[in-house]
Amino acid sequence: MTRFPLAALIALMLATPAAAHFQLIYNPDSNLEKPADLPFKLIFWHPMENGHAMDMGQPESFFYVFKGEKTDLTGALTPFTFKGAGNEALGFEAVVPVKRNGDYLLGLIPAPYYEASEDIFIQQITKTYLNKGGIPTGWDQALGLPVEIVPLNKPTNIIAGSTFSGQLLSDGQPVAGAEIEIEYLAAAPDMATNTAGPATVSPMPGGAIVAVTDADGVFTFGIPRAGFWGFAALGVGPDTEHEGKELSQDAVIWVRAYDLN
């Protein structure tokens, strides 16, 4: 995973391509017709290849925004053990009450994670979305996070075979020339058993899938198949140090694509 010169040096020394860490906020349902108390799993993982899972610390903040009103769920988070293909790791879960029609914008500021192989901390500030009733009520709004990707396509019903575009903001300002790593959720977590399913695709040869933002901080990627797609901009946040070590403050967004029936 390319971040900074140290990480690049490590990547050159490795015999196999580095896999991407991706913070996940997950529920299989992105579009609801009826009210529901919807559980979400927070997992720090390598979801494209069902790779190594990492222990999460107590998140700094977990919330949702509905029609401009923010509801804090940090105090409602409970820990659980997530079982990946090769190991177990600590994650967190909480329930989002979905009652009214419209867009629900979920945001997570996790605790920085120490990555010993790179001797840095990683903090992946993550967003995902759900909708009830098909009524748009603000999916394209920024959440005012230190670093974030704002969707330029409705993020809950992208057509597989079309494209997704997003704008990368750091401290509210567009970031030009930033690499965006792209991940497919190939091993969906089982909500009942907290285990990962088998990977449905193989990792791409040549390492991470990457797009680059333009002068306005915008990137576009062609979505080749249905499912959840994650986009991560690494090391672009305003905070660069934690506990005396380098901090990679990243922006992550997850969107949902469907096949046309």
Rank of each mutant, 00 (worst) to 15 (best):
L108W: 00
E60A: 12
D29Y: 12
V212C: 00
A192C: 01
S248R: 06
K34Q: 15
V65W: 03
T16K: 14
A85N: 12
E88C: 03
I10R: 13
A53I: 02
F82C: 00
E60S: 12
T156A: 00
R225H: 12
G237T: 04
V65Q: 10
A232R: 13
M13G: 14
G207Q: 08
Q173V: 15
D72F: 08
R225A: 11
K70T: 13
V147Y: 05
T200V: 14
D250L: 07
V65C: 09
S165K: 13
E183W: 10
A160K: 00
R100S: 14
A36D: 13
F82M: 10
H46K: 13
G51C: 00
V252M: 07
A233T: 03
R225W: 06
L105H: 08
T193I: 06
R225E: 11
N87Q: 07
E181I: 02
T195S: 13
K127C: 07
P28N: 08
I158W: 05
F4V: 12
W254K: 05
I159G: 02
T156I: 07
A187P: 00
A36Q: 15
M48W: 13
I182A: 04
N261K: 15
F4I: 12
P224T: 09
I253D: 08
P238T: 02
N194A: 12
A116D: 15
I158E: 05
Q249G: 02
W139V: 05
F221M: 08
L24R: 09
I223S: 05
D259H: 13
M13Q: 15
V98L: 02
D250C: 01
S170F: 03
G235I: 06
G197I: 04
F92W: 15
P39Y: 06
Q167I: 06
L108I: 02
M1L: 11
A15W: 14
G197R: 10
L152A: 08
I25A: 09
A89V: 05
A20S: 15
A89S: 14
A215C: 08
T220I: 06
P39E: 03
P97A: 09
P59Q: 04
E93Y: 04
Y26Q: 01
K67W: 01
G217R: 05
R100C: 02
G222H: 11
T16V: 13
P205R: 04
Q167E: 11
A176I: 08
K70Y: 03
A111S: 13
L42G: 01
W45F: 10
A186F: 10
D37Q: 13
E88A: 13
P155S: 08
P112C: 06
V255E: 01
E60R: 14
S202T: 14
E93I: 01
V150K: 11
Y258D: 09
M13F: 14
L152G: 06
Q141G: 05
V218F: 01
